[in-house]
């Protein structure tokens, strides 16, 4: 009994040490800046920025090849956060930020083809074949990948509807 416990413990300790040293030896020199930017991004890998996923976009932004504002789902707030982190100025391209948009399905023309469900990177769309689909707004990241998939143009991007839980007084605006 004691021999079994001891031998397994020692085996585990030796293998763990070897792997620990191997990890240090085989350390991949990732750019910490890239990882930091990637952590800020939505992470749904929707591909609207034109890069292969959020990791690709983060690498391009860190290398200065892409604008911090290249992420549509991240919107204005993400662009500002990344620009602050990098210490660069960012062209927000049109100051009128429409606010967060989420996908919405016009139930009168949805034919239940499930194409939008397959396109959704966050599994935010509910429904089955030949059943009317619906979008769970809390899960929708606003990546708009489903919009082009719909054969009947039932999908549209809409601003988040204001509910009692989400409504706040507007912030006081500076006049002058």
């Amino acid at each position: 009994m004691l021999a079994a416990i001891l031998s397994l413990t020692i085996l585990g300790a030796v293998l763990g040490t070897v792997l620990g040293f191997a990890n240090r030896f085989f350390q991949v020199e990732g750019n910490p800046l890239v990882e930091e930017i990637e952590a800020l991004m939505p992470g749904s890998n929707c591909g609207q920025c034109g890069f292969p996923g959020c990791a690709g976009a983060a690498a391009a932004i860190a290398a200065g090849q892409a604008s911090p504002a290249c992420c549509p789902p991240g919107g204005r707030s993400l662009a500002v956060t990344i620009a602050q982190r990098l210490g660069v100025s960012v062209d927000l391209g049109g100051a009128d930020d429409p606010g967060p948009l989420v996908a919405e399905i016009d139930e009168s023309i949805c034919i239940g083809c499930t194409r939008c469900i397959r396109a959704c990177p966050t599994d935010a769309i509910l429904g089955g074949p030949k059943q009317i689909h619906n979008v769970m707004r809390d899960s929708c990241s606003g990546c708009a990948q489903c919009i082009d998939q719909c054969p009947t143009e039932a999908m549209v991007m809409q601003p988040l509807p204001v509910t009692l839980q989400q409504w706040f007084w507007p912030k006081p605006a500076l006049r002058g």
């Binding site: 085996l11 070897v18 792997l19 191997a22 085989f26 991949v28």
Partner: peptide, 20 residues
């Protein structure tokens, strides 16, 4: 049990090496 332990460690090692 102990063989699986050794195999898992070998695989982890291989994974690190390939990633590098």
């Amino acid at each position: 049990l102990s063989f699986i332990l050794v195999i898992a460690a070998a695989v982890q090692f291989t994974e690190m090496a390939i990633r590098k």
